[in-house]
Design a protein around this nucleic acid. Structure first.
Lengths: 275, 275
DNA sequence: GTGCGCGTTGCATAAGGTGAAACACGCGGA
DNA sequence: TCCGCGTGTTTCACCTTATGCAACGCGCAC
């Protein structure tokens, strides 16, 4: 194997270098690869296309970064939860062709929702720029956060609310929050309205960004694992129309992603070892 | 990603096909790949060399089969124990250049030791053919088995002995076995002598194959994980010389493999997810 | 001995990988 | 608003280099 007389295949060799590099850094831009491997971008582009076609890497819509595909390998490391962005990405791309406004995929963290993916670069509009991957969204003041809180089970919801509750919470304010979440649950989708008094690092931002947003949870095996939203610029009187026109597509997309994630989460076989 | 204007890199594409195929089947010969992928063997050979050089696959000495390299992926699936053969293979190759006789790498199973790798194909001698991968070796009647039993901790040893004990075990025979193991432990290496009365599927085979064998355990982090032996044809009067000449090399190889395995078994980081 | 199967090597051919150069596009600054 | 830079994308002509036929070696079975 080591000392063969035959020559190696250069094209394969360099392509594998690219694959290894993408896997080493967890996300990488074309330019970074260009610098790291000293290969022309044109060449890299064709290699990346090839690797993508074979399912070894995928490209994030949010920023065009190339990410390694997590094979059946990384199962057990939190089931398929790590793949959500990869699985959701094509659905979000499809959604962008059906709906006029951009979406964001968010997953729950301790005290905020985190953006994993967005299709906003697919829209030309300046008003469509949604925060890059990694942006933290408020549980309280965003449709995305409320969609998750409304959908998760009571125990988790209580834990999150407890984390967010300010020391000087106004009397009755927590009941207001619960009422908002109850209404969200019954309605089937979340909005950033009505306003809630608890402070939050992003509260002011949300209040005055001149946008409106609706969100639904992505359910897999009965539990919410992420949320997907739709954001559009607030123009007087258009909100009801936008919501009415696109709600169904949003819900269908969320359901499709949930099913795809659930289908992936077949546990990998464990190789038994004797004792 | 999906609908690019650029062409894909064919050489890379086909090389990845080979990689995927090797990963799908866990072990595959050149000929099988040739049939499955319809590629000329010459081409496959160069691709396999390239994949090997990049550390994505490796070739087993025992039968020349190509096996996928188990990346940091499969950790948690029984730590590094699955890689032992891969790690040991180059050491066994090196050993074959220093010593005139072939070796076998064995790992413990419930009631036998199993051959994972052997360097015997590297020897020309007809007398050097050692069973292919998967062959089961007796715990009682082989040096390989005794080396493991002598090295493992008391609890495991008792469990194995209990499994092997015949219903009609002769009085005192179990004490004999323990004495053999005790002597093995103190001596530092195992032999297939002296004979022990307990029956075993391979007892007769071992008795009359006209060979002699010595074995030592491979220790990683204080516990035996495998054994490596040396087998040579029995010729009157040569045994002491062979053992004396090669014992040190065998022990050094075992130690080197053990250290390499221990170095690999750094646990992969677990991605934390919030609740 | 001999025939067959499989792995390996050599080599002529042209397929196709390559990278310079030009193009497209968005973003930030003036 | 316009310009310029940085990044991603496409094109294309050159010639490296991937390719697979053909021949060889070797061990194994009959």
């Amino acid at each position: 194997m080591l000392e063969r007389k035959v020559k190696t295949v250069r094209a394969l060799e360099r392509g594998l270098d690219v694959l290894v590099e993408v896997q080493a850094r967890r996300a990488v831009s074309l330019h970074e690869l260009h610098q790291a491997l000293k290969l022309p971008k044109a060449t890299l582009l064709r290699m990346l296309l090839t690797l993508g076609r074979k399912g070894l890497i995928w490209q994030r819509l949010a920023d065009g970064a190339y990410l390694p595909h997590l094979g059946p390998a990384a199962r057990g490391t939190g089931s398929a939860v790590e793949h959500i962005a990869e699985i959701a990405s094509p659905y979000m791309k499809a959604l962008s062709t059906k709906v006029a406004w951009p979406s964001v995929l968010g997953v729950p963290r301790l005290d905020h929702m985190e953006i994993l993916e967005t299709n906003s670069p697919l829209f030309r509009l300046d008003s469509a720029i949604l925060g890059p991957v990694g942006v933290k969204l408020s549980y309280i003041h965003t449709a995305t956060g409320r969609a998750y809180l409304a959908a998760c089970d009571e125990q988790e919801r209580e834990a999150i609310i407890a984390r967010l509750r300010p020391k000087d919470a106004a009397p009755g304010s927590e009941e207001d929050l619960r009422a908002i979440l109850k209404e969200t649950r019954e309605r089937g989708y979340a909005l950033r309205e009505p306003l809630h008094p608890w402070p939050d690092r992003s509260k002011q931002l949300v209040l005055r960004d001149g946008r409106r947003s609706m969100a639904v949870a992505i359910m897999a095996n009965g539990a919410p694992i992420a949320t997907i939203n739709l954001t559009w610029p607030a123009k007087r009187g258009t909100d009801e129309a936008v919501m009415h026109r696109h709600l169904e597509a949003l819900q269908q997309t969320a359901q499709a992603i949930g099913l795809a994630v659930a289908a992936q989460s077949v546990s990998a076989p464990i190789a038994g070892n004797a004792a």
